[in-house]
């Protein structure tokens, strides 16, 4: 199977700090990856690099068997979308305008948004529970509502690969699960892929079948959930002991 997204011989770092080197990482169709690691280990930088927004120190990102740098941003944006950790809003915008902006890579240069773009945006708003908020100003939303709007914009963009940077920030417990459920369902439906940065190990274990650990020293490990979720590895990753508790046929991880 050809990977949807691939890091070949990737070396990523900022200034003196090295996050990974010579990393070979293939993201295959249908896979959901969680990227775990301590603060400052380079999780966000890794996501930005996969999206082609930050240059690599060495190596290449390949998207659909082509080097990402050889593709236009527009082509990239049609198959790969990213939910950033934080957004800034400098000018007044409505919720619908923000969600509709997700359609940008699909709209021809000389055109306005079509009825289809509008329908897809409204559908994304239904899926994220934002019905009735179309004309609200972004500045009037709560943190959780804003996060769902950002997720809706990504859903409207409808890429094959979702890169999610702490998608559950500001969301209540129920909404966290509903949102991640939504994204994993999309991945399965379209045989796409997802890579997310998450701090909640149990949420990650619930929704992701593959894990990549960034230790913050340049060392990385990746593999399936079963290979990766082990006491000794997690202890080393978080510099804190983690214990599994059996629960309903699965395991819950608690910090010691």
């Amino acid at each position: 199977m050809t990977p949807l997204l691939e890091l070949r011989n990737g070396r990523i770092g900022v200034g003196e700090r090295l996050f990974c080197q010579a990393l070979q990482w293939s993201i295959l169709p249908g896979q959901c990856w969680a990227v775990l690691g301590p603060n400052g280990a380079g999780k966000t930088t890794l996501l930005h690099t996969l999206a082609g927004l930050t240059p690599l120190q060495a190596g290449q990102v390949w998207l659909d068997n082509q080097p990402l740098t050889a593709l236009s941003r527009r082509v990239v944006a049609r198959s790969l979308g990213i939910l950033f950790q934080e957004y800034a809003y400098h000018f007044p915008l409505t919720v619908l305008e923000t969600v509709l902006a997700g359609r940008h890579p699909h709209i021809p240069f000389w055109s306005f948004e079509s009825d289809r773009d509008r329908a897809l945006s409204l559908e994304a708003m239904v899926e994220t529970g934002l019905v009735g908020m179309e004309e609200r100003l972004v500045s009037s939303l709560s943190g959780g509502e804003r996060r769902r709007m950002e997720a809706a914009a990504l859903l409207a963009q409808a890429p094959k690969i979702f890169l999610l940077d702490e998608p559950t920030n500001h969301l209540d417990l129920n909404r966290q699960i509903v949102l991640l459920d939504l994204f994993t369902r999309k991945v399965r439906q379209q045989n796409g892929a997802m890579v997310m940065v998450l701090h909640d190990l149990n949420l990650a274990a619930r929704f992701c079948d593959h894990f990549l650990f960034l230790f913050g020293t340049g060392e990385t490990l990746h593999g399936t959930r079963e290979e990766m979720l082990q006491e000794s590895l997690l202890h080393r990753l978080f510099s804190h002991p983690m214990y599994p508790i059996a629960h309903g046929g699965g395991r819950i991880w608690v910090p010691g």
């Binding site: 930005h48 927004l53 941003r73 957004y87 940008h104 890579p105």
Partner: peptide
């Protein structure tokens, strides 16, 4: 960043 991620 957001603009670039959306194809600009």
């Amino acid at each position: 960043m957001r603009a670039a991620a959306l194809g600009v």
